[in-house]
């Protein structure tokens, strides 16, 4: 589903103006990373995508649904949102029940729920621990349960709020694998992240926010190449990108392959 945001402004009840005119279109099936300093408005922006926040002015369209008119529980059919802290969403006694909670809310029939749950657990490599209590897992794995509990809802848009914080390399790779799989299935994935390497390696499009406005928006290669502008929102381009620049490579490189091929040519 296409996401269309038009001149979105949002002011928190306490008076903080978090978004000051964001306009943005995300096509179906795009993989987008949002970067920017703390307080730049990333979370506020994505909370508008499933109606958790309502625009102070401007509009947000998911396909042809206006988030102002459709309740959150209905938007949940289209937009899945994995919160940053898994402990704020997990409550069931077993992982299986937890992952089945979302699809059950959406009113799928039993056999579809089963297959969705099995698939989601398989994707995050938790199939063998179906009957475990989520709170018996380490925080890293609880995060994977939270991820699975949204994937199982089979929404066409998946939002991940800082999926890689506190995760080791193996787990980051696992999350990257999930993102790649979602891409293959034609899902739109929007990720908020401070992990710039994760962003560079897994996302085609990068949006940098600063003080409630879009600072940069474009293909990862071009956005991450603009170190000076990114510095305004306290984002450092990946080490390899910076190294490539120092070496005077003509092309902006994002990962090892690009770096090596640019070096050889």
């Amino acid at each position: 589903m296409k996401i269309e945001i038009k001149d979105l402004h949002y002011t928190y009840p306490a008076g903080v103006e978090a978004l000051r005119g964001v306009s943005l279109t995300i096509d179906s099936g795009e993989q987008v990373a949002m970067v920017g300093q703390n307080g730049s408005g990333k979370t506020t922006l994505v909370k508008h995508l499933n109606g958790l926040l309502q625009p102070t002015s401007g509009s947000v369209l998911i396909g042809d649904l206006d988030t102002k008119k459709v309740p959150v529980a209905k938007l949940a059919v289209h937009v899945g949102y994995v919160f940053q802290n898994p402990d704020e969403q997990l409550f069931c006694r077993t992982i299986h029940e937890e992952v089945a909670f979302g699809p059950r809310n959406l009113g799928f029939d039993a056999s579809k729920i089963e297959s969705l749950v099995a698939d989601a657990l398989n994707l995050v490599e938790l199939s063998s621990r179906k009957e475990t209590n989520p709170y018996d897992l380490s925080p890293t794995w609880r995060k994977m349960v939270a991820l699975a509990s949204i994937i199982s809802m089979d929404t066409s848009i998946v939002i991940l709020d800082e999926p890689t914080t506190g995760q080791d390399a193996v787990n980051v790779a696992r999350i990257a694998h999930v993102v790649a799989e979602l891409r293959k299935r034609g899902k739109t994935v929007i990720t908020i992240t401070h992990d710039i390497d994760f962003c560079a390696e897994n996302f085609e499009r990068v949006i940098a926010l600063s003080q409630g406005k879009i600072l940069l928006d474009g293909p990862a290669g071009s956005v991450l190449g603009q170190g000076e502008i990114l510095a305004q929102t306290y984002v450092d381009p990946p080490q390899l990108t910076r190294l490539g620049k120092r070496l005077g490579l003509k092309k902006t490189v994002r990962n090892q392959e690009e770096f090596l091929s640019a070096l050889k040519s």
């Binding site: 499933n50 529980a73 059919v77 899945g80 919160f83 704020e88 969403q89 979302g102 809310n105 509990s149």
Partner: peptide, 19 residues
């Protein structure tokens, strides 16, 4: 504050808290 976040997280999972 915590309850607010939890409500938001569960509503995102299709939990109906409004009807």
């Amino acid at each position: 504050a915590k309850a607010q976040t939890i409500i938001a997280a569960q509503r995102s999972r299709g939990l109906d808290t409004e009807s």
